[in-house]
Design a protein around this nucleic acid. Sequence first.
DNA 1: CGTCTTTGATTGAACGGTCGGTCAAAGATA
DNA 2: TATCTTTGACCGACCGTTCAATCAAAGACG
Lengths: 210, 210
Amino acid sequence: MSPRSSAQFEEMREEKKTLIMDVALEHFSDYGFHSTTISHLAKHAGISKGLLYNYFKSKEELLAAIINRSLDEIYKSFNPDRDSNLTPDEFEQFIRKIFAIFREKRQFWKLIYRVMLQRGVYEHLLDDPDSPFKVGGTPLMEYSACMMKLLTDYFSRKKETEGADYDPMTELLMFSTTIKGFALTYIFAPEQYPDVYFEKMIDILIKKYR
Amino acid sequence: MSPRSSAQFEEMREEKKTLIMDVALEHFSDYGFHSTTISHLAKHAGISKGLLYNYFKSKEELLAAIINRSLDEIYKSFNPDRDSNLTPDEFEQFIRKIFAIFREKRQFWKLIYRVMLQRGVYEHLLDDPDSPFKVGGTPLMEYSACMMKLLTDYFSRKKETEGADYDPMTELLMFSTTIKGFALTYIFAPEQYPDVYFEKMIDILIKKYR
DNA sequence: CGTCTTTGATTGAACGGTCGGTCAAAGATA
DNA sequence: TATCTTTGACCGACCGTTCAATCAAAGACG
């Protein structure tokens, strides 16, 4: 096989994988991992059940591939400087970017929420130190810890400019809790967040925590 | 058979049902509905698989029974006057009670979140107008709508005392979003909320929204 | 009190159905 | 023809549910 045709085949192979992953993302996130059958996926992707196993070793590997693809896409558009401190401007951009990602990657977050809340899937995929997930090369857990530290530092530094009864940890907890609540609601019931409220939500958060 | 012994049998039956429901609540909420098998439940309840079907018609009826029992328990300790307007004091009690229920009924909420996020279980159990769930005799959906109205009215009335740029709907959305975020975090990762933060969270919410 | 009868709680093998995964064979390609 | 791709019937495992069979205990009888 010539190098050129080999590359072409590789490309076609990737295209087919992408198609399967697109279908699977939609189904996994709408119906959950267990409730989605391989037969359904194959039918909706227009291929046979057996062929799916030429592209992915197992159902779980398919799930992992989907998650990793989305993590990569997110990483490309969202990678704050993790070594230095956040400035207020950077913090504001941080918030805006998070909300933009919720909007652009709603399906992905739906999947994450569903998978995280399903025992047996969640555990060894997200919790394991050997989890197959990487964000731009960094293991997912390490990446999250890094983000958390960035925020902890930011809130801690604010104590100097705020009143004496300002408690950084409580504020950070309140901040992250609000964002999680927003994510949950927006992802599963976006009709509750028409654009105008979506934007107001961001403004309020920025005004309060910047 | 004398009435007395019949009553005794009835009592024993209820005790056994309670035992099964306790085991099932724990397993359903920890592992999800689908991942929990009848065999596991029977083994942990110390009975045979078949006997479970003398007490509950099906796995789903068992789930419904568990949810209804918890709804009843909650209703008994939390039933604000649904016909008149909330006073600020009542609103404060409302918030405190919600958080108390999160704490006391953590397993139940875990179950609700898991079930709500699992297609095929959620739909006809919670969404249906003919859902088998009642809160103190009122259908669940009607009860929720009533609560929502209570809150909407409360926030609307606050507009008169707040500034002109006070938007009741945005405030209510922010309020309910924060509570949902808290619930999600506390229920699935309570270690993030040691008692001191738990209480602070309540104080902040009351201070901000009362 | 001793013996026979009845009851219904309890068991677990068996059933029908589903699903992830496999593989021999058919089809396409060159 | 030789090689690679694709198919879908098939397999074994598992799960919710059923039901014939069991048996301890309570009642009936003498």
